[in-house]
Design a protein around this nucleic acid. Sequence first.
RNA 1: GCGGCCAUAGCUCAGUUGGUUAGAGCACAAGAUUGUGGAUCUUGGGGUCGCGGGUUCAAAUCCCGUUGGUCGCCCCA
Length: 437
Amino acid sequence: MATFQTLPGFREFYPEDLARRNHIFRLWRQAANSFGFAEYDAPVLEPLELYKAKSGDEIEGQLFNFTDKGGREVALRPEMTPTVCRLVGAKANALKRPIKWFSIAEFFRYERAQKGRQRSFYQFNADIFGEPGPEAEIELIALLIQCLGGFGLTKDDFYVRLSDRDLWFFYLEALGFDAGQTRELLGAIDRFEKMGDEAFKAYAEKFGALDAAKKERILGFMQVRSLAQIEGEVQKLDQQKIAGRLADWRRLLDGLAAMGLADFVQVDLSVVRGLAYYTGFVFEAFDRKGDLRALAGGGRYNDLVKKLGGPDLPAVGFAIGDVTTGLLLEQRGLMPNFVQAPDVYVVIGGEAERRVAFGDIQALRASGFRVEYPLKDAAFGKQFKAAAESGAKLALIYGGDELAKGVVKIRDLAARDEREVGRDTVVAAVRDSLSGG
RNA sequence: GCGGCCAUAGCUCAGUUGGUUAGAGCACAAGAUUGUGGAUCUUGGGGUCGCGGGUUCAAAUCCCGUUGGUCGCCCCA
């Protein structure tokens, strides 16, 4: 038993694990590139204050934070949003609009691990700054769908639930609730799916029992699953602001439909997301079977850049995690089995043959072939076994006979046939054999 | 921060009412096999039975604590 253990919730990536992680990262990066997003990165360690400024003092309980040797209060980053707001805010006037950025990075949260959640995890983050209209949401939701669809996941595997915190604000305002009550109610709506009626307890304790008729309307609004239903619910309210939101909803849904993504999205006003800083559309991606936690989440946060000291800059973004994505791909059999087979395995007779083979091995590797050979002398039988197990397509045989004749034997391991070529033509012969197969 | 379950070899696990030197399969390594294949056979390395304490003539086994894992609650950026 090892004396030193991995810290709780932290992750080690053995080669097979890293191959899976790289596979996920590769497709995310490909998706972002095809959408014209630019990649950035930033420090893992940030001032603690950055997160407190965004989320409040309570956040400290969820952070890996400490005092550094210079007396600074610091924290390992639990998310990218405040950081990217700072980066963009600092240069906002010099950046071409729209600003479309993404990153793939590791994050840390001091929480108990559970299924799909570790203390260390990776997230793909994509954000658009400087675009106030729903065109930014169209772009991001399309990218989110591609970030899952790229693996072969279909509309039967996952979907994106769409909602709108602004619409909720206006709706509750029209029902006569003030801002404080509205915030509390949005928290209750967020918890309702899990807790049922219990979710409204906190509101009742603060503001007194919820009027039964209004509660009915709130529960009814949560049931809304289409634009037509939104229109039906709000037309009686006759509010200018709500009319504006409806126009944005139409543009958003029309745009997504025109991209052929209508089957991936579902209007669902029961989603509000717990985060108070979201200001408009919010969305979450879920496994259709529903046995995993959220795959991805995001929304509009028009006030955050300014709140963190930058200019007044509208923004939308989302994040998608590697843990839940990996679980879903495993469940659906979409995680490829990664084997790193060499092109060529070199079989070496002995000391003299090894010295000759080394020259050719170097030449083959310099030409881009993946070449392996036994580090120590071994019986031919064992070497052929190793060659077969390695998955190599070809074996090159450097034995006493070949050396004497100035040739190399090339064996096609699958076809089990061999030919001899002159030593000076080995690279060309290997290239020929591999391209022919 | 709170609760349920779990912990024996790298992995999956067996281990009798507490009783000799803790086992198997897989994996790994060597040999059979000094010029041809993923098989087979033989052999080998690998264990503080998570850790600490207690009960007992005797503990992998029973008790307490602790650490870690896992699942859930709170939270979820």
